[in-house]
Nucleic acid binder design. Structure first.
Lengths: 186, 186
DNA sequence: TGGGTCATGTAACCTGTTACATGATTAG
DNA sequence: CTAATCATGTAACAGGTTACATGACCCA
C-alpha cells in the first residue's frame, strides 16, 4: 500500500526521495504514517519491480540526488491498485482497542480519557484546518483541479471524523457521569 | 498491541487459544483484524515474557488443549498499556489512500466507488447491528456490567462511523454530480 | 460422505519501527 | 552560532500476511 502511495505521488511528476518525503508529510501522512527509512526502502523495491526509473544527478553545493520517475509499468500498476477492491483492508485502531478494556480503570480516569481523546486521536492529527491551507497551495502545483478535488475529499473526511469523534467522546462522558451519580460508591 | 488485546481477553478468565480466537472474532476483530497464526505466535511471546501461564490438558474425544491464564505480571502489563498514551498510534487507512488518487479514474467510476463504499469499508464490516446482539450475549458471560459498557462504547463508535461514512460518500457524490453537469465533456 | 467445530501450530515472506549515520549549506 | 534544510541511507527487530499441515468427532 505504501508502495502505491509513493507511486501515486510520482505520477504527479518526477521527484527525489526527499521530495516524496515532504509531499507525503503534507498529504498522505494524515492517514498513513511512514518513516523516512521505510520510504527509501520501498523506493528500492519499486525499482526492482520496474515501476520506477532512477537517474543519478551529481550536485556541487548540495548532496547528489536520485531523480525518480514512474514507468509505464508503474502507471499500469498504480491504476490496477486504485481500481482493486478496498474491502479486505487492514483495520487496526489502537484507540478502540484501549477503549474496549477501559473497564480496568476508574470512572473518573475514563472521563479524563475521553476528555483528552479528541485532541490526540484524529487522522488529521496536525490539525485539519491546517491541512486545508496546505492542500490549497499544492492545488497550484498539481495544476489539475480535478485531481486536487480528491485530496480535498480526504480532508473533508478528516473534518467529519474529528466532529464525530468529539460527539462520541461527549456521549461516553455523559453515560459515565450518569453511572457516577447512580452509584456514587464506584 | 495485539499482545495486549489477548492479555485483556485472558483477564476476563482462563481460555484456550481457540477460545481467544472465537471471542476475538466477535469483539476486537471489528477494529483489529488478526490471523489465527498470529494469535498463536503472540501467545508464545506472552509466555516468554511471563505474562501468561500455560497448562496442558489432555483430552480424549477432542485434541489436547493448552489452558492459558494471565499472571500478576501480565495484569500489571495490561494496566500499564491501558494507561499509556494513545497519541502516536499507527494511522493507516487504505481507503483514504485510494480516494486520494482517484483522480486517475473517470467521474462516473468514482461516483460508483463512493456509492459502494459504505457497504465495504467500516470498522464493523460484518454489520454493526449484528455486533450489538453479540455483545449482549457476552454481557452475561463477563458478569461485570461496567466492563461490558466499554465494549458497547466501541460499538457505538462503529455505528457513528458508519453514519458518518455514508454522509461523506453522499457529499462526495453530490460534488461529482455537480462537476459532471458543469462540464459534460468529462 | 462432506462440511463445520475443536485444537494446534510452522515457515516464508512482507511491512513497519527504532536507532543510527553523515555532512555541507543557508537563514535567522 | 545554531537550527533547519537538503539528501542519502543501513541494520536489527517487531509485527502482520499467506500458505500450508494435521486429525478426530459430530451433524445432516
Amino acid at each position: 500500500m505504501l508502495k502505491h502511495g509513493i507511486l501515486g505521488l510520482l505520477n504527479y511528476g518526477d521527484m527525489t526521495g526527499y521530495e516524496i518525503m515532504t509531499v507525503f508529510r503534507d498529504s498522505l501522512s494524515h492517514f498513513w504514517v511512514a518513516q523516512t527509512s521505510q520510504i527509501y526502502r520501498e523506493l528500492q523495491k519499486l525499482e526492482e519491480n520496474g515501476w520506477i526509473n532512477v537517474t543519478h544527478i551529481a550536485q556541487e553545493s548540495r548532496p547528489d540526488k536520485n531523480m525518480l520517475s514512474i514507468t509505464d509499468a508503474g502507471r499500469a500498476e498504480l491504476l490496477r491498485w486504485i481500481k482493486s477492491d478496498t474491502a479486505n483492508s487492514a483495520v487496526r485502531s489502537p484507540m478502540l482497542m484501549k477503549t474496549f478494556f477501559r473497564g480496568e480503570c476508574s470512572i473518573d480516569e475514563n472521563i479524563a480519557f475521553f476528555r483528552d481523546l479528541p485532541g490526540k486521536e484524529t487522522p488529521f492529527h496536525n490539525g485539519s484546518e491546517n491541512a486545508v491551507t496546505v492542500s490549497s497551495q499544492y492545488e497550484k502545483v498539481i495544476e489539475e483541479p480535478l485531481k486536487a478535488l480528491y485530496w480535498k475529499f480526504t480532508i473533508d473526511f478528516g473534518l467529519m471524523y474529528d466532529r464525530m469523534l468529539r460527539e462520541w467522546c461527549e456521549n461516553c462522558i455523559r453515560k459515565l457521569e450518569e453511572i457516577k451519580h447512580e452509584n456514587p460508591a464506584d
